[in-house]
């Protein structure tokens, strides 16, 4: 034992033999239920959207600066890499929006029961996919 905390992990079994206490399984051991995946995705998309605010800031600064600066920003957003970023950002935004609404419903005290819990999770996934595709189809085709 190198660490004093290890002492707390050692005990005697019914035969009086020293054994390591069992640990609860690490997060990697669990099968991933939907809500567990959505929960961590909510955080990941939140941080990703935080990075995405840099693009929004650039766009607003460029719009406030000059025609040339605005053209540069629009050029980047319209480039393949810019469009890829924008697609990822739209996906994250729709997910965080719908998942956030699910959280707000929980905060109001509803939706904790077993069927509702999973149904709302799948609803978030489906709504995210449908709205992202719709937004891009409308954005590219109509406007």
């Amino acid at each position: 034992m190198k660490d004093v905390r290890d002492a707390l992990m050692v005990a005697r079994n019914t035969d009086g033999k020293l054994v390591r206490r069992p640990l609860s399984p690490h997060v990697q051991v669990y099968r991933w239920p939907l809500s567990m995946a959505l929960s961590i995705l909510h955080r990941i998309t939140g941080v990703a959207l935080g990075v995405g605010t840099l693009l929004m800031t650039w766009w607003l600064v460029a719009a406030a600066s000059s025609d040339a600066a605005f053209a540069t920003a629009e050029g980047f957003i319209g480039s393949p890499f810019g469009l890829l970023l924008l697609f990822g950002w739209s996906l994250a935004l729709f997910f965080h929006l719908f998942s956030g609404i699910r959280h707000l419903v929980w905060d109001a005290g509803f939706g904790f029961e077993e069927p509702a819990y999973n149904t709302s999770g799948w609803a978030v996934v489906i709504a995210t996919g449908v709205c992202t595709v719709l937004a891009w189809v409308i954005g590219l085709a109509v406007w």
């Binding site: 605005f70 053209a71 739209s90 935004l93 729709f94 956030g100 937004a135 954005g139 406007w143």
Partner: peptide, 24 residues
Amino acid sequence: TATALVPLTLWFIYSVMRFSTASH
């Protein structure tokens, strides 16, 4: 802030789509 951002985000997505190819 989350509650306020629900309608504001929808408006923002609409605006980005509307002005994605607009002139300065």
